[in-house]
C-alpha cells in the first residue's frame, strides 16, 4: 500500500475526461480541485481510491475523479461503500454526500456506518439547502427559512452534524469550509490518515439557492467568527485577540489583552465530553464557529475486525472444502 513505490502523479492524473457540470460559482468546484490536488500527495496508487456517492449535486463528484467511482442511489452511499470496504479492505474508500443525502434520506446509514467505525472517509458537503431539486429546505436549514416548500418559513429545527456524528460513536469528526482551501486539504489528509471511520462536514456555498449561507466564515471578518481547533493548543482566534474560557461546561469568549494564555481552554481531540461541548457551539450567537478536528480517537475498525474474524476462523477450524460440509451430519447409503 503506502510503502510501495508509487509513480509520481499530479492533479491532472486525478481529473476525469468528463465535463464538470455544477453551476458556475458553486462551492463544489473548490472542493473537487482541492481533492484532485491532494490525492497525489498521499503516496498511494490511484487505482486504490474509490469514490462512492449518493444523489444530489455533491454526489456527481465521482464522475469527475479519475479513480474508481460509484454514483449510487439517494442516501445509500455509506451502505454501498461498506460493501466495497468489507470486500477489499486495502482500498481507500471515500463517501461524498450532502446534508440531504447524508442526513435526511440516508440518516440511518450515516449513523450506523459511524457506529461500526467502518474505515470510510465521509465528506459531507453541507450547503443547508436542497440544490438538485431546486431549493427546498434541508435537515440543516435554519428554522424559519423561506423556500418554495416553506413559503411561510420552515418550522423544522435543524440538526447539528458533528453532534450527531459524536452521538453515533464516530472516532473522527472534523469540520472545514470550501473557501478555506489549505484547511480543507489538511482535514482530508487527517481523515486519510485516520484508521477508522472519519467524518468531515464541509460548509459549502450554494450560490443559486442559498447564497451567502456561510458569509460570516468566509468574508472579510471571517477570522473573528471562526476558531481553528488545534490539538493541545489553547483556543484563541481573531488573530490572537480573543480566546475561549470554559467554566463548567459553559464557554465564553474573552479578550486576550485582559487574560493570559493559561486561562484559555486547551483543545484535546481525544476528549469526548469536550468534543460534545465544541460541537454545540455551532451557530451560537456569540461563540465562534469551530473548524478543524473536533474529535479523534483510535479504535479497531469494523473492516479490520472482519478480517481478524475470518483469519481466526481459518486458524481454528482449518481450511476445508464444500464437499466436506455436504457430507457432514447424519448420512446413509442407498445401494
Amino acid at each position: 500500500m503506502t510503502d510501495v513505490q508509487v509513480p509520481l502523479l499530479t492533479k491532472k492524473d486525478y481529473e476525469s475526461d468528463q465535463a464538470v457540470r455544477w453551476c458556475p460559482g458553486c462551492g463544489d468546484y473548490a472542493i473537487l480541485a482541492q481533492t484532485q490536488k491532494i490525492m497525489p500527495t498521499f503516496g498511494r496508487k490511484k487505482e486504490e481510491f474509490v469514490f462512492v456517492s449518493g444523489i444530489g449535486c455533491s454526489s456527481r463528484f465521482p464522475y469527475y475523479m479519475n479513480t474508481y467511482g460509484f454514483h449510487t442511489i439517494h442516501g445509500r452511499a455509506p451502505a454501498v461503500a461498506t460493501g466495497v470496504k468489507i470486500a477489499n479492505p486495502d482500498l481507500s474508500v471515500w463517501v461524498v454526500t450532502g446534508d440531504g443525502d447524508g442526513l435526511s434520506i440516508g440518516g440511518n446509514h450515516f449513523m450506523h456506518v459511524l457506529r461500526r467505525n467502518m474505515d470510510l472517509n465521509i465528506l459531507m458537503f453541507n450547503n443547508r439547502i436542497y440544490g438538485l431539486t431546486k431549493g427546498q429546505y434541508s435537515p440543516t436549514s435554519e428554522q424559519g427559512k423561506k423556500t418554495k416548500a416553506s413559503p411561510f418559513g420552515s418550522i423544522d429545527y435543524p440538526l447539528n452534524p458533528p453532534s450527531l456524528a459524536l452521538g453515533a460513536q464516530a472516532t473522527f469528526v472534523a469540520r472545514t469550509i470550501d473557501r478555506w482551501q489549505k484547511h480543507l486539504a489538511e482535514m482530508m489528509l487527517r481523515s486519510y490518515k485516520h484508521d477508522g471511520g472519519s467524518f468531515i462536514e464541509i460548509y459549502q456555498n450554494c450560490n443559486i439557492f442559498n447564497d451567502h449561507a456561510f458569509e460570516e466564515y468566509t468574508g472579510v471578518d471571517k477570522f473573528d467568527n471562526v476558531i481553528e481547533l488545534k490539538n493541545n493548543e489553547p483556543m484563541i482566534f481573531a488573530k490572537g485577540t480573543k480566546g475561549i474560557k470554559l467554566e463548567g461546561s459553559k464557554a465564553t469568549v474573552v479578550d486576550m489583552e485582559k487574560h493570559s494564555l493559561d486561562e484559555i481552554l486547551v483543545h484535546d481531540e481525544s476528549d469526548l465530553n469536550l468534543a460534545h461541548i465544541i460541537a454545540n457551539w455551532t451557530t451560537h450567537p456569540v461563540l465562534p464557529e469551530p473548524i478543524g478536528v473536533i474529535y479523534s480517537i483510535d479504535k479497531p475498525s469494523y473492516n479490520q475486525e472482519m478480517v481478524n474474524q475470518v483469519e481466526m476462523a481459518k486458524k481454528i477450524k482449518g481450511t476445508s472444502c464444500v464437499q466436506d460440509l455436504l457430507n457432514a451430519g447424519d448420512t446413509w447409503v442407498v445401494s
Binding site: 442511489i73 454501498v80 461503500a81 466495497v84
Partner: peptide, 15 residues
C-alpha cells in the same frame, strides 16, 4: 436497504 446496498458495493469490488 443497507443489506442490498452493501451487496451492490461488494459486487462492484469483485465478490
Amino acid at each position: 436497504i443497507a443489506g442490498i446496498s452493501s451487496v451492490v458495493g461488494a459486487a462492484f469490488t469483485g465478490k
